[in-house]
């Protein structure tokens, strides 16, 4: 499935995974190494949307302090919590 994702877009999103908070950098580095290349186009699209969140909200989601009610984001949130 992965070949359906634009390779240039994948590189752009890899850079956008650099954040203002260390905790997110650490989690996303692992995510990029372990899971990123296996994402389906839907999961990739969900990840791109999560990256639009402000860092503070993003971290709370990854830490499990808040839950998302967006069902399309849930799988990627679960992945980020497990790496």
């Amino acid at each position: 499935m992965s070949e359906l994702i634009d390779p240039i877009e994948k590189k752009r999103v890899r850079w956008r995974s650099r954040r203002g908070l260390l905790e997110l950098d650490l989690v996303l580095t692992r995510f990029l190494a372990e899971r990123y290349d296996q994402l389906t186009p839907d999961e990739f699209a969900a990840y791109v949307r999560i990256l639009d969140l402000p860092d503070t909200e993003f971290l709370e989601l990854v830490n499990g302090k808040v839950e998302t009610d967006d069902v399309t984001l849930a799988p990627i949130v679960a992945m980020l919590r497990s790496v």
């Binding site: 956008r16 650099r18 954040r19 203002g20 908070l21 402000p54 860092d55 503070t56």
Partner: peptide, 12 residues
């Protein structure tokens, strides 16, 4: 800026 302004390290 290397990153989007609101993702600067000031956020920490």
């Amino acid at each position: 800026s290397k990153v989007f302004p609101t993702r600067s390290h000031t956020v920490a």
